[in-house]
Measured scan of single mutants.
Amino acid sequence: YDEVAAQGEVVRKLKAEKSPKAKINEAVECLLSLKAQYKEKTGKEYIPGQPP
């Protein structure tokens, strides 16, 4: 859960800094992968601010 939240912060920071699109896309792919792992382990969708 904490990893997903941390990666979400990374994506937000990159977007706020107007980073190159390729770098943002890479961070988003990582975030989506973490969300998929979270769902696989818990059986639930990741919802920000609602730990399992």
Rank of each mutant, 00 (worst) to 15 (best):
Y1A: 00
Y1F: 15
Y1H: 01
Y1K: 01
E3A: 01
E3C: 12
A5E: 13
A6T: 15
A6G: 05
Q7T: 11
G8N: 13
G8E: 04
G8H: 15
E9N: 11
E9D: 14
E9P: 03
V10P: 04
V10L: 15
V10W: 05
V10M: 08
V10Y: 08
V11F: 02
R12W: 03
R12K: 12
K13M: 09
K13F: 03
K13H: 03
K13Y: 02
L14T: 07
L14G: 05
L14C: 01
K15A: 10
K15Q: 14
K15D: 06
A16S: 11
A16L: 13
E17M: 15
K18E: 08
K18Y: 05
K18S: 09
K18M: 12
K18L: 06
S19P: 08
S19V: 15
P20G: 11
K21Q: 09
K21I: 11
K21N: 09
K21W: 04
K21G: 12
A22S: 12
A22E: 14
A22I: 13
K23Q: 14
I24A: 03
I24L: 09
I24R: 05
I24N: 03
N25F: 06
N25E: 12
E26V: 05
E26M: 08
E26C: 06
E26N: 07
E26S: 08
A27T: 02
A27F: 00
A27W: 00
A27D: 02
V28M: 14
V28D: 09
V28P: 05
V28L: 09
E29F: 02
E29G: 08
E29I: 04
E29M: 07
C30H: 11
L31P: 08
L31R: 05
L31V: 02
L32H: 15
L32D: 14
S33C: 06
S33T: 13
L34I: 03
L34G: 07
L34M: 10
L34A: 10
K35N: 01
K35I: 04
K35A: 06
A36D: 10
A36W: 02
A36C: 06
Q37S: 13
Q37N: 04
Q37F: 02
Y38T: 02
Y38I: 01
Y38L: 02
K39R: 10
K39I: 06
K39V: 03
K39C: 06
E40L: 07
E40I: 14
E40S: 08
E40K: 14
K41M: 09
K41N: 10
T42E: 13
T42A: 08
T42F: 14
T42H: 14
T42D: 02
T42M: 12
G43Q: 04
G43V: 01
K44S: 15
K44P: 15
K44Q: 00
E45Q: 07
E45N: 08
Y46R: 04
Y46L: 04
I47F: 09
I47S: 12
P48I: 05
G49R: 09
G49K: 14
Q50C: 12
Q50F: 13
Q50A: 11
P51S: 08
P52T: 15
